[in-house]
Amino acid sequence: MTTLEVQASAPPSGRSRALGRRTAELLRSPGLLASYLWVAVILAAAVHPGLFVSGDPLRQDASQMLLSPGAGHLFGTDDFGRDQFTRTVWGTRLSLQAAVIAVAIGLVSGSSIGLVAGALRGRVDSVLMRVVDIMLAVPSLIVSLAIISALGRGTLNIAVAIGINSTAGFARLMRSEVLRVSNAQYVEASVFAGHGYVRRLFRHVVPNASRSVLAAATMDIGTAVLTVAALSFLGLGAPPPTPEWGLLVAEGRTFIGVQWWLSLLPGLVIVLTVLAVYRIGRSFNRGRTRVVA
């Protein structure tokens, strides 16, 4: 019984085997496969929107106002006669860019802070963690709003605000992972190999601690997509004609009673993207906790 469980969730073995296991997992789980495919499509749309649509997202056409979704206009048209599908595809780049920048900022600054705190411990740790606690005490949307009121509106500023905001979470996670791994016996055992502290830290602690931090970062891209959209929805992102997911939802809001698709279809794209990213993030995190017989 126990041995079977161990086999089922064994820690990384040979690299080729690990790769094989991932592929097998992928094939067994249609949800995960679909998530990877969707993310691939979204990435393609972000890099090269022309692959999916030929039109100009900003071109207005008074004769084509507020059309229902149909063959010519997959998502319908807005009150300026712009094709909503084209705008959604073109909006991918800005939305995704902001989310990735935000996570990159949070990941780099947060895990550095967490590593320093977890490695040095003592007073440095206390001070850093108090700062982190303070940041986490204020709801993230409020912090983001405060940062934006300081920096001003704009998609990049939104990304920076979210990034600064998520720093605290990454710092705390990295620190707790560093402490957890530092307590592992193999880290103590490495003392006997005669290496210095820094080498032991980077050889044993950092690689093992990074795993769940990276999984969290993946998940966080999903959260960042949500938050970017939310802040854009509130009108704090790019100014109106620019296509951006949250803004598209906000613009369609006026017509929610009748032309509901203007808001809800771009909204659906956001939902699917977040779902896919979360699903992938969860698959990274799985099997990390090992069953000890």
Binding site: G267, L275, Y278
Partner: peptide
């Protein structure tokens, strides 16, 4: 997982 992936403003709009 679906519930946490739904943007709150979108849920609001649908309900509205």
């Amino acid at each position: 997982p679906i519930a946490v992936s739904l943007p709150p403003f979108l849920v609001g709009l649908v309900l509205l």
